[in-house]
Amino acid sequence: MTTPKLLDTTDKSTAHIKPDGVPIAETILLPGDPLRAKFIAQTYLDDAKCFNEVRNMLGFTGTYQGTPISVMGTGMGIPSISLYTWELIHVFGVKNLIRVGSCGALQEDIELYDVVLAQGASTDSNYLEQFALPGNLALLSSFRLLEAAKRIADDKGQRTHVGNVLSSDIFYSADEQYNQKWAQMGVLTVEMEAAGLFANAAAAGVDALAIFTVSDHLLRGQHASTEERQTAFTQMIEIALGLA
């Protein structure tokens, strides 16, 4: 990937992102939690400056090992990440969007704290209906980013899984067999945002990837503690930052 440049935000703003002239990098990490965006900026970025505080959806731009990179929260669910990524792409010109978050495992060979690289994202969302496609679009990540992330993870000795994830609008399902039905189709994990990101990226012709840390195993009823999540998430973040 070519070195990401800083994008001029002078005279650019939306109802949800107001940089006030602070630049945004062409490559951005997108955790759901704005406080995790702040943690990433404070822990990993040099000379980090806040470019967004609207609705407390914090965004920061700095450098990682000399390379410009931004990080911003997106909130929970496809509607929220889709709103922010549409504006980042179409108003501010972001080219590489990397979701980093947690997920729940649906396969027995996946363990807590493993890293999942989303090759594609299935969904129960109606988000794609707006495009009026004459069929069903397979939502895929950028192979360029995916291949690079897998190489970085392998170099670190990080246990990873690559494949299909589920981006669901439903956190508490009334269907008791909901997770099992997706698991039977080989879906690795469930989360709530990647499909919206991949759809926006596909429509705009930019690159997107989603990287997850397994925080829960939905078939076994296993859950990571808050402290364990924080430690495990740093491995995922370092893979994502390596893409810059």
Rank of each mutant, 00 (worst) to 15 (best):
H16Q: 11
H16P: 03
K18I: 04
P19M: 08
D20T: 05
D20P: 10
G21L: 02
V22K: 12
P23K: 02
P23W: 12
I24N: 04
L29V: 01
P31A: 10
D33A: 05
P34A: 08
L35E: 14
R36Y: 06
F39I: 01
I40G: 09
T43F: 11
D47Y: 14
A48N: 05
C50A: 12
F51A: 15
F51L: 13
N52I: 04
V54L: 07
R55V: 02
G62P: 03
G66I: 00
T67L: 05
I69S: 13
S70L: 02
V71S: 00
M72H: 06
M76N: 07
I78W: 00
P79G: 04
S80W: 10
S80L: 13
I81D: 04
S82K: 08
L83S: 09
Y84A: 05
T85H: 06
L88S: 09
I89F: 07
V91T: 13
G93W: 06
G93K: 02
K95P: 02
L97I: 02
I98G: 08
I98P: 07
A105E: 07
E108H: 12
Y113P: 00
Y113C: 10
D114I: 01
L117H: 07
L117K: 06
A118C: 01
A118M: 04
S125M: 12
S125R: 14
N126F: 14
N126A: 14
L133K: 05
G135K: 13
G135V: 13
A138E: 14
S141E: 10
F143C: 02
E147N: 15
E147C: 03
R151E: 15
D155Q: 15
G157E: 14
Q158D: 15
T160Y: 15
